[in-house]
Simulated assay, not measured.
Amino acid sequence: MVHRVGYAPGVYDLFHIGHLNILRHARSQCDYLVAGVVSDEMAELAKGRRPVVPLPERLEIVRSVRHVDAAFVETVPDKLETWKQVRFDVIFKGDDWRGTEKGEKLERDFAAVGVEVVYFPYTVHTSSTLLTRALNALVTPGSGEARTAP
């Protein structure tokens, strides 16, 4: 019997150690972990750019992580709407949300339905944004081809 369902939303683009850490820590604090994989359209809306890795591939990667019991595609920006579909007891976010307007709204919204918000340390030294910048720096402007090391 499942007692505590956790939900760990994210884009999970260019999967890296920060993603793995969130999923590992989340699973240690619940009996059943659902990873919410944000759709390409929702990621573009939230971040101003589409993910490098398309949704079906990101979903398969996240679904294959041993800490994840199920993966869910997020297609709406409102986490409460997602909660109505998934019905989790706790939501996990990076601590870069703590104390922000978005984080405070999340906490208020979920307090109203009895869902706990748990923050985990954000992996500062590795992020999909930094990886994307590094990849873009390897591409010769205009050619679309990767540069070779000298």
Rank of each mutant, 00 (worst) to 15 (best):
E41K: 03
E57H: 11
H25D: 15
A134F: 10
Y122T: 14
L131K: 13
V37F: 03
D89W: 06
G6H: 09
V76W: 00
V38L: 11
A134R: 15
A26C: 03
K102W: 09
V65I: 15
V113S: 03
S143M: 09
V76M: 03
G10Q: 13
E107A: 03
G36A: 09
V90H: 06
F120N: 10
V90A: 03
P121M: 06
H67L: 01
D13L: 04
L14D: 13
P77M: 06
G36E: 08
A134S: 12
P9Y: 05
V73I: 14
G144R: 15
R50M: 08
P54W: 08
R87K: 15
W97G: 03
V68Y: 02
E57N: 06
G114C: 03
D13F: 04
V115W: 04
E116M: 05
A26Y: 05
K105L: 13
D89R: 05
H16I: 10
G18A: 07
L59D: 04
R66M: 08
G48A: 07
A146Q: 09
H25T: 11
V11I: 12
P141L: 13
E145Y: 12
G94K: 05
R58T: 09
L106Q: 11
E57K: 08
D31K: 03
G94F: 04
D78V: 03
A149E: 14
K93R: 15
D109L: 10
I91Y: 01
R108T: 11
V68Q: 02
G6F: 07
R63V: 00
L80I: 14
A46I: 13
A46F: 10
D78R: 11
D109S: 09
W97M: 09
L33V: 06
R133C: 00
S143D: 11
V124I: 13
A137E: 15
L20F: 11
G18W: 07
F92Q: 06
V5W: 01
V117G: 00
L130T: 10
R108Y: 07
A137L: 12
P54A: 05
G18F: 06
N21G: 00
G99Y: 11
V115C: 02
R66D: 08
A35Q: 09
A134V: 11
L135M: 13
G18S: 08
T132V: 12
